[in-house]
Design a protein around this nucleic acid. Structure first.
Lengths: 153, 153
DNA sequence: TATTGTTATACTCTATAACTATA
DNA sequence: TATAGTTATAGAGTATAACAATA
């Protein structure tokens, strides 16, 4: 039967154990959750604000979809962020039904400080790894970036 | 002053941009969070159950600490998992105050099916990357694993 | 007296359903 | 009539404080 011979996949034999990769990512996510800056922001709020800071303003509905929460939940989340002075609504010029959201200066400051805090933790954790593993991560950085990109849909 | 010469770090010059790495990881985790298997389990419940399945039984207090929730919150979470037949309490032989928790067979089944679902998603997403990037991720897998390990404290 | 866990209570966040305004 | 968003209400999950049992 020649089952040992890969059939019609020239060079694309699975070079990576997807289940293993998925499991590792889950553990990383679990760990990340724990070193999240406590207090101030809920996970969804943090990701939403971070996204607004990264990608610019966005429609309320789009935010709801991309964070996988309902429209009413996002309405309330944005209201909370607005009350905290971290984000603000503005009407759409073309369609009066639409509500756009953008981060405020205070929001950007907060996002930046949270990022800095996480980067500091990351520095500390990465320093605990042997140089070879650090190098492997450095080499995989573009791939991780690409994966985040394709996963963001 | 010779500031350009690294002082006492022979070969461990930062081989990786920690801020960049942290930012990418944040995006990746944000995306990963959304493709979590929906419904049934809260994030904390899922992580707790997954941990029990991976590392074996654990004290209630340790679970609370490792998931960064309070003891009462973990008490209730375990009660919920117990009511769903996914985990169970058992008393400690040495110390009658202690409550240990373990996953049930049903719990293991659920964890396994969730893992499989995520692995399937991972397979799909990874397949969208060029072979070179897949290879880079495969090479970085042990390092990611080690990072998850050191982050778990 | 300290530690382990539970119960009581209140608050935050989210979902579903019903509603308003605009297209 | 469909779409964008809000309001109303209820439920899940968590925290703080007070408590019970054991060490």
């Amino acid at each position: 039967m020649n089952a040992t011979q890969q059939v019609s996949r020239p060079t694309t034999d699975p070079p990576i154990d997807c289940a293993e990769f998925s499991a590792v990512l889950e553990r990383l996510l679990s760990a990340w959750r724990r070193l999240a800056v406590p207090g101030e922001l809920s996970p969804t709020a943090a990701f939403t604000l971070s996204r607004l800071a990264r990608d610019g303003s966005s429609r309320l509905t789009d935010l709801a979809n991309s964070e996988h929460v309902t429209q009413p939940a996002m309405t309330q989340l944005i209201s909370r962020l607005e009350a905290q002075g971290l984000a603000e609504r503005f009407r759409d010029a073309d369609d009066a039904r639409v509500v756009n959201v953008r981060v405020t200066a205070a929001g950007e400051t907060l996002v930046a400080s949270r990022r800095a805090a996480r980067a500091a933790k990351a520095t500390e954790l990465l320093a605990a790894l042997p140089a070879a593993q650090q190098a492997a991560l450095a080499m995989a950085l573009p791939a991780l970036e690409a994966l985040a990109e394709v996963s963001a849909r």
